[in-house]
Design a protein around this nucleic acid. Structure first.
Length: 670
RNA sequence: GCGCCCGUAGCUCAGCUGGAUAGAGCGUCGGCCUCCGGAGCCGAAGGCCACAGGUUCGAAUCCUGUCGGGCGCGCCA
């Protein structure tokens, strides 16, 4: 890892600059450590002299030279050069650097101790997951892994909207269209792919509503039944939600995505979390009852509007009252029922431990027979008797949810702020990303006539219409494609291993594809593109690691030598080959491999996980180029051979770690 | 109407806290298997970084405006 070295360089430069120019800390601009565009220019670059030029009234070049001369020795740094244009360039001690990385990583900087709650997935439990949900889960899961990598405690939550209209719609489908009671629904669930069955039923119900709007009254009545509980519709709804959630967990499990806690909306209702949050909001005046106008009788929250505030108060305008009213968001309807926003506010309060109330907890499932997936429950008698871990009470909350919900997520922050929880409002982070749509070609392949949308750049996925690529279908197709390739290349492998490898490859293909785009970009999903295993894809990355592993496997088989032996021997291995120009490419590879921590921090700072994907791909590219050019097994010079093997071992380890952060494993062969 | 996001090679996209010569994949064209496995490697062609101003020693990157495109803005969730 490279960050500790960055820190050291920053500290030494700061100290030197303070001494040489008699500057106070406050006058010192932030010291940026960069990576030079070419390795020949150095290993680390600092453009500080440009920043200081104006204040010191000196040419950047002169400043760089003075700082370089006064810097003195820095452990791990071989030499410092002031570039003619003013950059301060650092060349590292190559052999020492590689030896240190292989001997075990240096201690990292202090990690944030506060717990991070990451909520992701949150699919309505009424149909199969599709690729849009997969983007959410892949981003959320990778975010969680990055936070853990940094050393921060992480809790992954999945919100289950088991009492919403979408579940109600499927209940309506079973009852009104298929005339099924609870037992009949159970029989369907036991004998079909239930999430697929409901996928179709859901779109059928949607059409059924559209042909006669009067039927929407049945939906409303069913929704009320579900919210009230204690009736057949509520039983069916709860059953559907439970079974579909299990389908979702299985689907996500195929991608290595896991959860600590499932938060059920029904429990929030039954435990009256909203009532507690409502009392608190009323007490603070964060919500108030609107007595007049079109929102009379509603409890509303005033929405902050930056542009309006900037204009200043001019209440004299004739339409000022209307404008003010339009900036009020209804939290409790005039009939006394709470809106979705209200439930979300209560949940957000709970996540920070601000509600003063807690759920009971039960074990919902065990992954791979071990790790429990916990779920909330409102039934104390159903709670796990052995006690549950502490959930919630987060220091920071990441809600992974697509950008269309930005408005609502902003309200959550505001509610916290209005309650005086400024810190929590700041640490209430909406991880926003753009939706997944379908390319025209893929929409056509699904049999969808997109003629009406021919002029648009993509075709929007619609759960209601049943238009979309189901997650499991995509994974199945990826596995089939990967299976074909594995068989072609490894015809003699046992069927079971072939299958396992194909699954590992398919997972990487899917996950890399979902991570590689920056979050602000709409993915126009194209099935052919996603099924590709060449170029910038997950399998390309795996292939690089498999190649590296093969080298060490051969070394073991042919010569009985382990990697550890090479590492142990580095101490007395001459390093001329590494320090000379002949070692430039090897060194470039090692240095790039060490930047994982830097990239992980950048990804977290910007919430741009594509940074991690691009880094992994670039490193794999570098390795493949090196692999092609420099032999290891067939290298005769023992010192050169050792350094190469050591470098490849380090790169292999770092690339494996990077893949793991993206939820990808490395197959035994490819 | 207001708010947020996007506009970079034929296509899909990177481009870090403003920094050194704007990159990658796909596609096209041309090479490379006696070798650690070709899911690979090497090379070529391909750019008004949407447009116009501004800030700066320095702008694809920051600011303002314009033009395209997408998404939000409900007593739905």
């Amino acid at each position: 890892m490279i960050l500790p070295l960055h820190q050291l360089v920053r500290e030494r430069i700061a100290r030197t600059v303070r001494e040489v120019y008699a500057l106070a800390d406050a006058d010192l601009p932030p010291i940026v450590v960069q990576s030079p565009p070419e390795r020949a220019l150095g290993d680390l670059a600092v453009p500080l002299a440009f920043e200081l030029a104006r204040r010191l009234r000196k040419a950047p070049r002169a400043i760089a030279q003075e700082v370089a001369a006064a810097l003195g020795a820095i452990p791990g740094v071989a030499r410092v050069v002031a570039a003619p244009n003013g950059y301060l360039n650092f060349y590292l001690d190559r052999p020492a650097f590689l030896r240190a990385r292989l001997a075990g990583e240096l201690p990292r900087g202090p990690a944030p101790a506060e717990k991070a709650v990451v909520e992701h997935t949150a699919i309505n439990p009424n149909k199969a997951a599709h690729i849009g949900h997969l983007r959410n889960a892949a981003l959320g899961d990778t975010l969680g892994r990055l936070l853990r990598f940094r050393g921060q405690p992480v809790e992954i939550q999945n919100y289950i909207d088991d009492t919403g209209v979408q579940v109600a719609d499927v209940v309506v489908g079973f009852r009104e269209l298929e005339h099924k009671d609870f037992e009949a629904v159970r029989r369907v669930a036991d004998s079909t792919r239930f999430d697929y069955y409901c996928w179709d039923l859901y779109s059928t119900v949607t059409e059924w509503y559209e042909s006669d709007k009067e039927r929407l009254k049945i939906r409303t009545a069913t929704l009320h039944d579900i919210e009230r509980g204690g009736n057949e519709n509520a039983r069916i709804g709860a059953f559907i939600a439970d079974r579909i959630v299990r389908c979702h967990l299985a689907t996500m499990g195929r991608l290595g995505i896991d959860y600590d806690l499932l938060t059920w909306e029904g429990d929030i209702l039954r435990l009256k979390f909203w009532d507690h949050a409502f009392d608190a909001l009323k007490a603070k005046g964060a919500v108030f009852r609107q007595e007049q106008g079109r929102l009379a009788g509603c409890w509303v929250m005033t929405i902050e509007d930056e542009s309006a505030e900037a204009e200043g108060p001019d209440a004299g305008e004739p339409d000022a009252e209307d404008a003010a009213e339009s900036r009020e968001k209804v939290i409790v309807r005039s009939d006394g029922t709470v809106t979705y926003v209200g439930k979300d506010i209560a949940n957000q309060f709970w996540k920070f431990g601000l509600l003063g109330w807690d759920f009971h907890y039960r074990v919902f499932d065990r992954r791979d027979g071990g790790h429990p997936v916990w779920a909330t429950t409102s039934d104390a008698s159903a709670a796990e008797t052995g006690g549950a871990p502490t959930f919630g009470r987060a220091g920071v909350v990441y809600n992974v949810i697509d950008t269309r919900q930005s408005y609502l997520q902003k309200l959550l922050k505001q509610a916290l702020g209005a309650m005086g929880y400024q810190r929590e409002a700041e640490r209430s982070i909406h991880y926003a990303y753009e939706m997944v749509a379908l390319s025209h070609a893929t929409a056509r392949a699904l049999g969808y006539d997109a003629a009406a949308e021919a002029g648009r750049p993509f075709v929007e996925v619609s759960g209601r219409k049943g238009l979309g690529v189901k997650a499991d279908d995509l994974l199945d197709r990826l596995i089939d494609a990967a299976h074909g390739e594995v068989v072609k290349r490894n015809p003699d492998l046992p069927a079971e291993e072939t299958r396992r490898i194909a699954e590992t490859i398919a997972t990487a293909a899917a996950r890399y594809f979902l991570i590689k785009f920056s979050r602000g970009k709409v993915i126009a999903f194209d099935i052919d593109e996603a099924l590709s295993f060449e170029g910038e894809t997950g399998p390309y990355l795996q292939y690089a690691v498999v190649r590296a592993n093969n080298i060490f496997r051969k070394l073991r088989e042919r010569e009985g030598v382990e990697v550890a032996a090479f590492v142990a021997a580095l101490g007395e291995t001459p390093a001329d080959s590494l320090e000379s120009a002949d070692g430039d490419e090897l060194w470039d590879l090692v240095l790039e491999a060490s930047r994982l921590d830097e990239m992980a921090e950048q990804a977290l700072r910007t919430l741009e996980l594509s940074v991690l994907a691009k880094y992994a791909f670039g490193l794999a590219q570098k390795f493949n180029g090196f692999y092609h050019k420099y032999p290891i097994l067939n290298e005769d010079r023992p010192d050169v051979r050792r350094w190469r093997a050591a470098a490849v071992a380090y790169v292999r380890d770092q690339l494996t770690r990077t893949l793991d952060l993206m939820g990808c494993r490395v197959p035994s062969r490819m």
